[in-house]
Amino acid sequence: MNSATQPQASLPRDRKDADRDTGKEGSKIEGDTPAQRLLALLEVIAAKDQFFTLQGLVEETGLPKPTLHRMLQQLEGSGMLQREADNRHYSKGSRLRRLAENLLLNDTVQGARHGVLNRLMEEVGESCNITALSGSEVLYLDRVETQAPLRFYLHPGSRVPVHCSASGKLFLAQMPPAQRRRLLTGTPLNAMTRNTLTDIESVEAEIEQVRQQGFALDDEEFLPGLVCIAVLAPNPDGPSNIGVAIQAPVMRQSREDMLKHLPALERAARDIAAIQRGAIPSA
């Protein structure tokens, strides 16, 4: 692995995702429901710095003109878009602008959590992330990349299988046995690397160890050459759905090296838990 390059962690995509239309500029309108595709179109529009037309969006996205016309009508009717004086061009509507402004003004919890994650990255020198369980996958809520030249890139919004990630093992360890067994039997335990545990009994044995030790390791189980250590942000009221993790290439950090970062990781998890509790008003 060349240290001058930054390996990209590419996640498997369903065939239906790969077959969706893309335009000449590569903009994608993805989603399994009309609402999801409408949100995807809003993402394309939000990235524009000038007025746009229906025909321009057709050429950019590759979607049929009648479909896009109907979607634009819906967005215009809801105040997310507005028609310009020439009746051909569109621009962002007042409701969409208010949404963006409110998001920026009130996103203090995310900002505070990101600050904790950034301090952890600076302390340990490796990429750090915050995760949550979403169905049978681990969802990356936030991530701070190391500045070291060799790193794996996994952006917020990435999803990884629950059975071969450090955070996923922690989420599984919290579940009652019947719930965990139901999830594992209904989820393909695919071999992502030669180290991936692919049968339920092996996963259960690993989960028992995780439960006893209070942290979890991913020892090149999701990506070759990647090690990870994770803990949960403590929740005194019940199971936690916030994981905090450190990831590094094995060329720079061994399994034993990662264990040395456990105290710093646990401090960060406690700080993030305090932020979470402050964000949720008392009953």
Rank of each mutant, 00 (worst) to 15 (best):
M1P: 06
N2D: 12
S3M: 10
T5I: 12
P7E: 00
Q8D: 02
D21L: 15
G23P: 05
E25K: 10
K28Q: 15
I29M: 12
I29R: 10
D32A: 14
D32K: 11
P34I: 04
R37Q: 08
R37D: 08
L39W: 06
L41R: 06
L42F: 07
K48Y: 13
F52L: 10
T53N: 02
L54N: 10
L54A: 10
Q55Y: 15
V58K: 15
T61Q: 10
G62C: 14
P64K: 00
K65E: 07
P66S: 12
L68F: 06
L68K: 03
R70I: 10
M71F: 11
M71K: 12
Q74R: 09
L75P: 02
L75T: 00
E76A: 06
G79Q: 01
L81Y: 00
A85P: 09
D86Y: 08
D86R: 01
D86P: 05
R88W: 00
H89N: 02
S91R: 03
S91Q: 06
K92P: 02
S94T: 07
A100W: 09
E101S: 05
N102K: 00
L103K: 07
L103C: 06
T108N: 09
V109N: 07
Q110S: 11
G111W: 04
A112I: 00
H114R: 09
N118G: 08
M121D: 05
E122N: 13
E123I: 10
E123H: 12
V124A: 02
C128V: 09
A132D: 05
S134V: 12
S134P: 00
S136I: 08
D142G: 10
R143S: 14
R143E: 14
T146A: 13
A148Q: 15
Y153I: 12
G157K: 05
G157T: 08
R159L: 07
V162P: 05
C164E: 03
A166G: 02
G168N: 06
A173I: 01
Q174V: 07
M175C: 07
Q179W: 01
R180Y: 07
R182D: 15
L183E: 02
L184T: 05
L189F: 11
R194S: 14
R194H: 12
N195M: 11
T196A: 10
L197H: 03
T198P: 00
T198Y: 11
E201Y: 12
A205M: 00
E208W: 05
Q209G: 08
Q213R: 07
A216E: 01
L217W: 01
D218I: 03
P224Y: 09
P224G: 07
V227A: 12
C228W: 03
I229G: 05
A230K: 01
L232F: 13
L232N: 06
A233M: 13
P234W: 13
P234Y: 13
P234C: 11
N235C: 14
G238Y: 14
N241G: 11
N241E: 13
N241R: 12
V244R: 07
Q247T: 15
A248L: 09
M251P: 00
M251V: 11
S254M: 01
R255F: 06
M258N: 03
K260T: 15
P263G: 03
A264F: 12
D271I: 00
I272L: 12
I275R: 08
I275E: 14
Q276R: 11
A279H: 02
I280H: 07
P281Q: 05
P281N: 04
